[in-house]
Nucleic acid binder design. Structure first.
Lengths: 207, 207
DNA sequence: TAGATTGTTAATCGATTAACAATC
DNA sequence: TAGATTGTTAATCGATTAACAATC
């Protein structure tokens, strides 16, 4: 699961960070920036930022830097987030509820459209505008809503099975909140969120 | 914020993944493994795993591989998680509640001990065994509990201020769930969780 | 013993940075 | 014009992999 047009994945991974920083500048009504300024914000060298961006086009002007609006637009295009992606969430436990209620997705290109849970006591219950659906309907509802991205917030023991059902239903990208590696076909993208991995990285440096 | 004894940070970042995979093997009562097997699980080359581990000692045996229990023990030592780290959580909104209730921290070296919120309506309320404290008590309670790690789950606009209060109270490692970069002294470690960054990385590869 | 797998060296590969001509 | 900053090349730096002697 890497390389599309041949741009190294390590570069692609930095683009969303550039976009986030630029969007924040936009919110502060900053119209113009430079690789220097962006680099300071992100802890990335200016040369690297220019090199990364140059993979996709010439977005700046010598002497003046980059137009914030223009670069935001271009990065949204490159990252495929000029549209809104509908998302399915599987697992309406504590974390699933919190994510379903989170307001921050919408203006960054994503919208949670379906929530599933396997527990019959939960199905039918509402979370904001959403109604919790029975997990057995994954196969039916995900294609019906033309959904290609899902988040998994079920207990570790159920994650692999859920992943398989999602893939069978047409999902091609999974954000996995369970502390389990998922085994999926290699045309399915998986990103993993495990806070403990990040905590343990930090404790290495603490005495 | 890098390099302790001089082991490259890129290697340190892989250690928690090794530990997680090994713990899973342990749960399946597997007693012995090899760089080959571990590599397949993690999508990392066997040579790299051996090289990474060799930075810290000789943990394997030619011909037979690694004892799972022994390697788990060694990695826990290296990562500093043979002890339990108490954690403070700031922000008792949806996400904060979900994290405070999450059961998965304890057996991986962490325990949430304090929860703070700035809203007077919430302080005093319970989440499981914890009682939500007024954020103004950060300065008092964090040193009193000898806490050095915190998680931030407040809205974006409040995150920087909270980070500064935490640092002033003695926190040296922050797991930041807000979509904001935090500016902290360089002896403070920050890890960032922003699901949208990860989603946007995946949409790059989707049509 | 024969087979397996480690730890490590040397070779390869790829990513980052420094530097600068081009130019706004 | 003078100053600033881009996009890009070439040099450097660092990480990954291949290969193998050592040895369980």
């Amino acid at each position: 699961m890497e390389a599309k047009s041949g741009v190294p994945d390590i570069i692609v991974r930095r683009l969303p960070q550039y976009l986030r920083a630029l969007t924040q500048l936009q919110a502060q009504h900053v119209h113009s920036t430079s690789s220097q300024e962006l680099g300071e914000k992100l802890g990335i060298s200016p040369a690297q930022i220019r090199k990364d961006l140059s993979q996709f086009g010439e977005f700046g002007k010598q002497g003046t830097g980059y137009s914030v609006n223009y670069l935001v637009d271009k990065l949204q295009e490159i990252l495929n987030v000029k549209r809104v992606w509908d998302i399915a969430l599987v697992g309406a436990g504590n974390l699933g509820h919190a994510i379903a209620r989170y307001q921050g997705f919408t203006n960054r290109g994503f919208q949670i459209r379906l929530v599933f849970d396997q527990d019959p006591e939960k199905t039918g219950e509402r979370i904001g505008d959403l109604i919790i659906q029975d997990s057995r309907k994954i196969k039916e509802l995900i294609p019906a809503h033309n959904i290609h991205i899902a988040m998994i917030t079920v207990p570790a023991s159920a994650a692999q099975k859920v992943a398989e059902e999602l893939v069978a239903a047409g999902v091609r990208a999974i954000l996995n909140y369970s502390p389990n590696p998922l085994s999926v076909p290699d045309w399915v993208h998986v990103e993993h969120i495990d806070p403990i991995i990040q905590l343990q990285h930090m404790t290495y440096y603490l005495e």
